[in-house]
Amino acid sequence: MTSDAAPLLSVSGLERAGIEVPDFALAAGEALAISGPSGSGKSLFLRALADLDPSDGAVALAGADRNSMPAPRWRRQVTYVPAESGWWAERVCDHFEDWDAAAPAAARLGIPAEAGDWSVSRLSTGERQRLALLRALVQGARVLLLDEPTSGLDVEATWAVEARLREFLSDGGAMILVTHDPAQARRLAKRALRFERGVARPERRGQ
């Protein structure tokens, strides 16, 4: 039931213990910024959208409900990148289907091609963050659910990641971005939600 008229991501009646979220939809190219104190439900919200924890409600990608497709296919398209990335193999390249193909994209984020042979344990926090984002990008995610994607990065790396994310949006992707930096939220997203003790409300912007 995919139709061109349907928004890229639509969420209505989302119910999961601990959080309360208004219905919303994101068109291709749109981003939604999320803010709120830690423990206010931001990560629970992103996990529910990625179907990593059980939740009720209608969540659809381009008109196709998530329950109409196997969960792995849903997550390849609606991909959650948590603040603390997980790793399951010894070397960096083992976490990519084809590291050589991903290397040019890695270089744009400031990660050299030889990083593929590095051991995961020697990566810095910032390198992990960028590589985890890259994993989701190279396998063709259409909606990114990003939990503080630049929190461990210096200014230069932050700009590189933001440039890549803007390109992702202009290529027709959509994203939900948890960030503690109001300036970053304004740079990347036109709309915003604020979480307070599990309840999300649209954030009014002064200007």
Binding site: L52, P72, R75, G86, W88
Partner: peptide, 22 residues
């Protein structure tokens, strides 16, 4: 203990059998 690594694979769309295999 390996929750992070297992869930990272699930987030990228790997099936549960593959993610839990090791």
């Amino acid at each position: 203990r390996e929750k992070g690594g297992i869930e990272a694979q699930l987030m990228l769309g790997r099936p549960r059998g593959q993610a839990l295999r090791p």
